[in-house]
């Protein structure tokens, strides 16, 4: 595929070990920022990120490899969470779960994420999830009408005077906009 792209004159993404070395350094830093402190867990995750990254830079050659690496690390986390909690396609649930694990509310999640632990942590992740808003319980709340006593008084007096003077028909057209 790469050679085909090269023959077609399209820039080919650098998938060399040197390129990955540059990317992996940053991805490792990022994984650490996610809370993955154990070097063993990071190593295992880096291997999986690399697989995803290589597939991606091959498919989208013009992309910034560093950015792709970070995005793939995050995508790996999302994929794992969806699988762990069986919430594929449920965006809000995914965001809640992500917040739960990254805030440190779920102990040992990194081991499970790295595939070191075989014990499911779905229950802990769900328990650590906090919903900011309750289920909707809507009520109607329409603006009420407040009829001001002297609104447009000048205009109304002028109108009445004009009617008296015979300039306009007595029955004025109804107001389209009610004062509220």
């Amino acid at each position: 595929m790469d050679s085909g792209l090269a023959m077609a004159g399209v820039a080919v993404a650098d998938r060399s070990p040197a390129a990955w070395a540059r990317v992996s350094e940053r991805v490792a830093l990022y994984l650490r920022a996610l809370g993955i402190e154990d070097p063993l867990h990071r190593e295992r995750l880096l291997v999986r990120v690399r697989q995803r990254w290589e597939a991606r830079v091959s498919a989208v050659p013009l992309e910034d490899p560093l950015e792709a690496g970070i995005e793939e690390a995050y995508a790996l986390l999302d994929t794992w969470l969806c699988a762990e909690l069986d919430i594929t396609g449920e965006l809000d649930a995914l965001f809640t779960a992500r917040a739960a694990v990254l805030s440190g509310a779920v102990p040992n999640w990194t081991a499970r994420f790295a595939g070191v632990s075989g014990e499911s942590i779905a229950a802990q992740v769900r328990a650590a999830g906090v919903q900011p808003e309750p289920e909707p319980a809507p009520l109607e709340m329409e603006p009420n009408t407040i009829n001001l006593c002297c609104h447009d008084l000048g205009r109304r007096i002028t109108g009445a005077l004009r009617v008296l003077a015979g300039h306009e028909p007595a029955a004025a057209p109804p107001r389209t906009e009610q004062p509220r």
Binding site: L139, M141, P143, N144, I146, L148, D152, E177, R180
Partner: peptide, 14 residues
């Protein structure tokens, strides 16, 4: 809450 929602929706003054 219910009467508040029913009667206290505020209009804009002209």
């Amino acid at each position: 809450v219910k009467p508040f929602a029913d009667h206290c929706g505020l209009p804009k003054l002209p």
